[in-house]
């Protein structure tokens, strides 16, 4: 096992997770280095979302090791994990219907210095500025996704966990989200991304981990992706 001291901000080893009785992760392991964008690829049910939720402390039971910035997250409740600088953007976006767009945006508390200011968030997502007093769920799907990403940028979190941010969105919006991920990377954010769409993943990520049956079965650097397209098709069943 490689040592985490080589710059890995997040090191996951032999991670097991359970929802009630069902054992979903069976010893997943991978690393994300400071400033990287890394994707988890895999079919439905491979355990990608569960991996993100396990890092965030949102599954019933976890075992193994999740080391973030030197601290083990297994055993911490999710509010403590958030306070260490990890932020989660769920697949279903989690926009609150009883809150306005502005309230949604300002909801996550700041956990440390260095987050984006509200003005910078509006620069990234100009649509949100005009809709501040609308009900959160009245936004279009793309705008909701932008709100869901925008609101975790304020908090000062350094590791962003994004669960399928492009799912169900029009190609032009997907492109915008790709550009935003690139901007966030250039600002020093570390991003762990779950994707079904590996063509999108290839435009933003440095490395890809492939998951199957609750384990990480392969790692492909982005510049080797073309050489491995056939293998990936097999993995993903495209």
């Amino acid at each position: 096992m490689p040592e985490a001291a080589d710059g890995a901000l997040l090191a996951v080893r032999d991670l097991h997770a359970w929802y009630g009785e069902s054992h979903v992760l069976h010893g997943a392991g991978f690393e994300v280095r400071q400033g990287e964008v890394v994707t988890l690829l895999g079919r439905n049910g491979a355990g990608k979302t569960t991996t993100l939720k396990s890092i965030m402390g949102m599954v019933g039971r976890r075992a193994g090791e999740i080391r973030f910035d030197g601290r083990d997250l297994v055993g911490l409740p999710s509010n403590r994990i958030a306070r260490l600088g990890v932020a989660f953007c769920p697949e279903e976006r989690g926009i609150f219907a009883s809150l306005s767009v502005g309230e949604n945006l300002l909801l996550p508390p700041q956990v440390r210095e260095g987050g984006l200011g509200v003005a910078e968030i509006f620069e990234l997502f100009p649509n949100l500025r005009e809709r501040l007093s609308s009900q959160g769920t009245k936004l279009s799907g793309g705008e909701q996704q932008m709100l869901a990403i925008g609101r975790i940028l304020r908090t000062g979190a350094r590791l962003l966990l994004l669960d399928e941010p492009t799912e169900g969105l029009a190609p032009v919006i997907v492109q915008q989200i790709g550009a935003i991920i690139a901007k966030l990377k250039s600002r020093g954010f570390t991003i762990l991304l779950v994707e079904q769409n590996f063509r999108f993943a290839a435009t933003v990520a440095d490395r890809h981990y492939v998951m199957e049956h609750g384990r990480v079965v392969d790692m492909i650097a982005n510049d080797e992706l073309q050489a491995n397209v056939d293998k990936l098709h097999d993995y993903l069943g495209v």
Partner: peptide, 19 residues
């Protein structure tokens, strides 16, 4: 706003760092 949000989705509000 924390209360209303936690009424809808307590797990997510907790994942934002609220106890």
């Amino acid at each position: 706003a924390y209360l209303r949000a936690a009424t809808e989705n307590p797990a997510l509000v907790q994942a934002f760092g609220i106890n």
